[in-house]
Design a binder for these strands. Structure first.
Length: 422
RNA sequence: GGAGAGGUGGCCGAGUAGGUCGAAGGCAGCCGCCUGCUAAGCGGUUGUGGGGGUAAAACUUCACCCAGGGUUCGAAUCCCUGCCUCUCCGCCA
């Protein structure tokens, strides 16, 4: 959420930001209603002041056993007026809040301007895609089914499309990756947490999934809850409605959680395999930092995610998302894309974002500077480290052998208790 | 699922015959004083958000005693609903 006053004082900048994002928004309507909100608010406050003053008088008169009927008469009218204006104020407030919650974040000045994902900018590349002495390299689902480590058919019997049943070494690989990632992240100062994975509406609003993206979430109807689409939601909301001490910052968390996504509107995409599932595992990193540090922290966060890929010896590239491809809440995002020989292209495996104070304002996460009065919003960041299902895909495809087996990356062997599947 | 108890400021904890309560008192914190160090002692001070105001302050005003409604000229105090916490019983991994 943007600051209401900031919008008013920087109309042109906001307009420009929305335009760069190809985002349609009735900004003029919003500003008009916001001005009305202030006007009505002043009116109500003036009346309330009058009420406070006269009510005190009435109290005094009554204690002196004096007659207060003229004041009582006046206050009756005032009270009525307050009530009706209050109703109006509430309506206007709801309207402004509903609107402001659907305005996306303003892209950072370093974000490349572009229409869609085709205009994202490659920032760097690491590793060299392997040359196979057999052709063509297989898709991960063919590899996995041949090894009997992922069973898509039975998963669809149990649940439906876009679910997977991991078996034997496949299940073990999933668990090994989870542990490897958590161990690596905690060694870099991230505190491990294991949060609830069903959350309330406030938490979803805090990080920006609601109200705009209800269609992408699994919802539990009664009582109302939501399944998290990413650990970002519960972990960022750990500090919702809190005021942190300056000395506590920065705060780093890492969490493994299952994630649940409707994938509405992606019916044709990635229908086979593990790439796009309704349920998948992910290890996430989340940071709460001081505003002046957040862009340096984004670079560090991205490097932490990259380090996982380097340790697994998987070729990848880093892409800076352009303004048209940026997520709703994000001010700047780097995507990490891992090389997939089976698809002959790079595919997203991590997304690292700086939300600046956009989520902090929604979730009311503040901090207090030493010796200064008042509070400020923190900056929040998060990044996948990493999406586990897609890491499995990358390992199967990059480490496949001519005989159909898959070599386990060096660093995972202690976790796997084997150096080869099949 | 059944039966009770409770939710007050950074913390502890007063405050229910409705008015002078943003809220006693204590602790912690901060600023002074004092004590050759430390402790004790003395005085003062210390919430958040919004509006107005200012160069910035000062200042002023509204709201906030879990949340949302209601009663009333006036509510931390009365009524209703919800959420959360705790205790006992049942059930259960």
């Amino acid at each position: 959420m943007l600051d209401a006053r900031f919008i008013k004082e920087n109309v042109d900048a906001v307009k420009e930001a929305l335009r760069k994002r190809n985002y349609e928004f009735p900004l003029a309507d919003y500003i008009a209603i916001e001005e009305k909100r202030i006007t009505v608010m002043r009116e109500v406050e003036e009346l309330r002041n009058r009420r406070n003053v006269v009510s005190e008088e009435i109290g005094k008169l009554k204690r002196q056993k004096a007659d207060a009927s003229p004041q009582l008469e006046e206050m009756k009218a005032v009270a009525e007026k307050i009530k009706s204006l209050d109703d109006r104020l509430r309506a206007v407030e709801e309207e402004t809040r509903a609107l402001i919650l659907t305005i996306p974040n303003i892209p950072h000045e370093s974000v490349p301007v572009g229409r869609d994902e085709n205009e994202n900018i490659e920032v760097r590349k690491w590793g060299v895609p392997r040359q196979f002495d057999f052709k063509p390299p297989l898709n991960h689902w063919d590899i996995a089914e041949a090894l009997d480590i992922i069973d898509f058919d039975r998963a669809s019997k149990i649940s439906g499309a876009r679910f997977a049943l991991m078996k034997g070494a496949g299940a073990r690989l999933e668990r090994a990756l989870m542990n490897f990632m958590l161990d690596t992240n905690t060694s870099k100062g991230y505190k491990e947490v294991f949060p609830p994975i069903i959350v309330n509406r406030e938490s979803m609003t805090g990080t920006g999934q609601l109200p705009k993206f209800e269609m992408e979430l699994f919802r539990i109807a009664d009582p109302e809850f939501y399944l998290i689409p990413t650990a970002e939601v519960p972990v960022t909301n750990i500090h919702r409605d809190e005021i942190l001490k300056e000395t506590e910052l920065p705060v780093y968390y890492t969490a493994y959680t299952p994630c649940f996504r409707r994938e509405a509107g992606s019916y044709g995409k990635d229908t086979r395999g593990l790439i796009r599932q309704h349920q998948f595992n992910k290890v996430e990193m989340v940071k709460f930092v001081k505003p002046e540090d957040s862009y340096a922290e984004l670079e560090k966060l991205t490097d932490n995610a990259e380090d996982l890929l380097r340790k697994l010896d998987l070729p990848y590239r880093v892409v800076a998302l352009c303004t048209g491809d940026l997520g709703f809440s994000s001010a700047k995002t780097y995507d990490l894309e891992v090389w997939l020989p089976g698809q002959d292209k790079y595919r997203e495996i991590s997304s690292c974002s700086n939300f600046e104070d956009f989520q902090a304002r929604r979730a009311n996460i503040r901090f207090k500077r030493e010796g200064k009065k008042g509070t400020e919003f923190v900056h929040t960041l998060n990044g996948s480290g990493l999406a586990i299902g897609r890491t499995v895909v990358a390992i199967l495809e990059n480490y496949q052998q001519k005989d159909g087996s898959v070599v386990i990356p060096e660093i995972l062997r202690p976790y796997m208790g084997m150096d080869r599947i099949g």
